[in-house]
């Protein structure tokens, strides 16, 4: 049963990533150089919609709280995010969208995946040394959520009710998606001033 769900949800995820342009390196480049933020608006809307439905469903007793999986915060999360950001801008792919782009026949996506397999192997080889630096030691409460989510063991960064806060923040994400301009850097800003 789980395998069928993997095929259906994974297949839908791949198809949607293609249709919103997330697996197109041109679209990623234009988002990150702030000349076309439509994909950013779609991502913000998606986080908001997912959040409102999940926490709303939990409050109505329709979504199993046990399906949540909150990752631990440590300094390496930020450092790894920085590294991923550089590679994301350079290649135009992140791990999931690189796989989808390979499915689209983009040749550079195969180079990205090959580099990714080597990068993951390099992390496997250096993991003990990284762990010894303390970069992986939990900070900010470890696997914490911003509020305290009822029915979970995740520590709350604040004592606010985590499900209500999740819905409020979800609505904030939706609002930001609508307010964010489609373009921040104007075309003319790089031309010499007259």
């Amino acid at each position: 049963m789980e395998i069928i769900l993997a095929l259906v949800i994974g297949g839908a995820f791949g198809a949607v990533l293609d249709r919103i342009g997330a697996s197109n390196p041109n679209v990623i480049g234009r988002m990150l150089n702030l000349t076309n933020l439509k994909l950013m608006k779609a991502i913000l809307l998606a986080i908001g919609v997912g959040s409102v439905l999940m926490f709303g469903g939990q409050m109505l007793g329709m979504v199993d709280v046990g399906h949540m999986s909150v990752k631990t915060a440590y300094l390496g999360v930020f450092a790894g995010g920085l590294l991923l950001g550089v590679g994301w801008a350079l290649a135009g792919y992140c791990p999931g969208t690189g796989v989808v782009a390979a499915g689209a026949g983009r040749r550079d996506a195969f180079a990205f995946i090959a580099g990714g397999l080597l990068g993951a192997a390099a992390y496997m080889a250096t993991y003990p040394a990284i762990k010894a630096t303390g970069l992986l030691d939990a900070i900010l409460g470890g696997n914490a959520t911003l509020g305290t989510v009822p029915g979970t063991d995740y520590p709350g960064l604040t004592g606010l009710p985590g499900d209500t806060l999740g819905i409020v923040l979800g609505l904030v994400f939706v609002a930001v998606a609508f307010v964010l301009p489609e373009r921040i850097i104007r075309k003319d800003t790089r031309l010499p001033a007259e």
């Binding site: 995010g81 992140c94 580099g115």
Partner: peptide, 12 residues
């Protein structure tokens, strides 16, 4: 880019 992305993702 793939190398940096996956090294970073695993670190994170």
């Amino acid at each position: 880019g793939g190398f940096i992305v996956l090294y970073g993702a695993r670190l994170a």
